[in-house]
Write a protein that binds this DNA or RNA. Structure first.
Lengths: 189, 189
DNA sequence: ATATTTAACTAACACTTGTTAGTTTGCTTG
DNA sequence: CAAGCAAACTAACAAGTGTTAGTTAAATAT
């Protein structure tokens, strides 16, 4: 029961193609061909193209929600919490770079699940924002524009899916330390 | 001759739709309907859907190339050059957020123009990288991993198109200062 | 006034899309 | 061996795709 099901194979194959061309440009025939079968055969395992997208995106969004929940309820310092967020993004992204591309680029093609996804996303951003504000109040974080700091960090973390696959010899911990350092201390001497 | 031509109207309307749903999900009928005409009428002004995408992306990519060329050949300090790059991104993006969405998300659907676009992009990244390396050599910039710094800054700058439209009362200069400060000094106290 | 241009229209095309129905194949289990 | 099942297949569909051809109406230039 723990081995990868045929459905999972379809989802992973699709995610790979979605990353290259986007959800709308990938046809069911593309997915089927990549698996060496015919398009109609896909429907023995999944109910629609939509379902594939939903499975890719929602499971990832829930992983992030869970990770943030854990960090929130910890008693790390604000800076330590931010470092944990960096680790969270690197960990999830390096395990599923294809899916992360869909999460970032194809979320608007969710249909019934779109409101749920948007709720998870704005909750996540709100928790992130709270950590920054708390850090400023506690004098751990510079009193710069919170929205600018949030935007800058989140943009970088959300783009990891583009960048991680280019680094063949990825050491997650080292990357996490380097990236945390740059995000927290900037590039200044 | 300086007023917006019908072709430009089509390109701008298309860019807006491309931002919302992506190039592949937008049909010629969608573009036409948004302009209050029929799809076939578009072809009095443009030769293909492809051409619309090309016009949007290539002109923006060339603007960036030109801006970088200017910064490169200036004799600002490395940090000042980076601040100019931040300004460049904010300026181009706030003038054309729709187009910037296509540049970021739909470039892979360029066909004949794809190699040219990729060349411009990698040249741009190389010049950016050179500025960082020069800054490290001159002891203006911290000796952190150059690729991590480059990735972090570029990710943030490339995501501006998502964020700028949310700020209704945009003061470009103030944003430029705030963002430069965060990118250069980080968020640390 | 006539000729020309601009920019819209209708109608249609060949092809591609997601999906369904019904069937066949080959493995697993009693 | 027979039955059941998982997972492939072929064939077809209705709707939607980008695009072309030919036409028409209004604005502009001669």
């Amino acid at each position: 029961m723990k081995e990868e099901s045929r459905k999972d194979e379809i989802i992973n194959t699709a995610a790979k193609l979605f990353k290259e061309k986007g959800y709308s440009a990938v046809t069911m025939r593309d997915i089927a061909t990549a698996m060496g079968i015919k398009a109609a055969s896909l429907y023995n395992h999944i109910s629609s193209k939509q379902e594939i997208l939903k499975e890719i995106i929602i499971s990832l969004a829930e992983e992030f929600t869970q990770g943030m929940e854990f960090i929130k309820s910890s008693n790390f310092s604000s800076i330590e919490k931010l470092k944990k967020i960096v680790s969270l993004h690197i960990s999830i992204t390096s395990q599923n770079t294809y899916g992360m591309a869909s999460l970032n680029n194809d979320w608007m093609h969710l249909e019934e699940q779109l409101p749920y996804y948007l709720k998870l996303r704005s909750n996540y951003e709100n928790e992130f924002r709270k950590i920054l504000k708390e850090g400023i109040k506690k004098n751990e974080i510079a009193n710069s524009d919170v929205e600018v700091m949030l935007f800058s960090m989140l943009s970088t973390l959300r783009s990891l899916y583009i960048w991680i696959p280019k680094k063949e010899d990825l050491n997650s911990e080292e990357l996490s330390n380097n990236l945390s350092h740059v995000l927290i201390n900037g590039i200044n001497k």
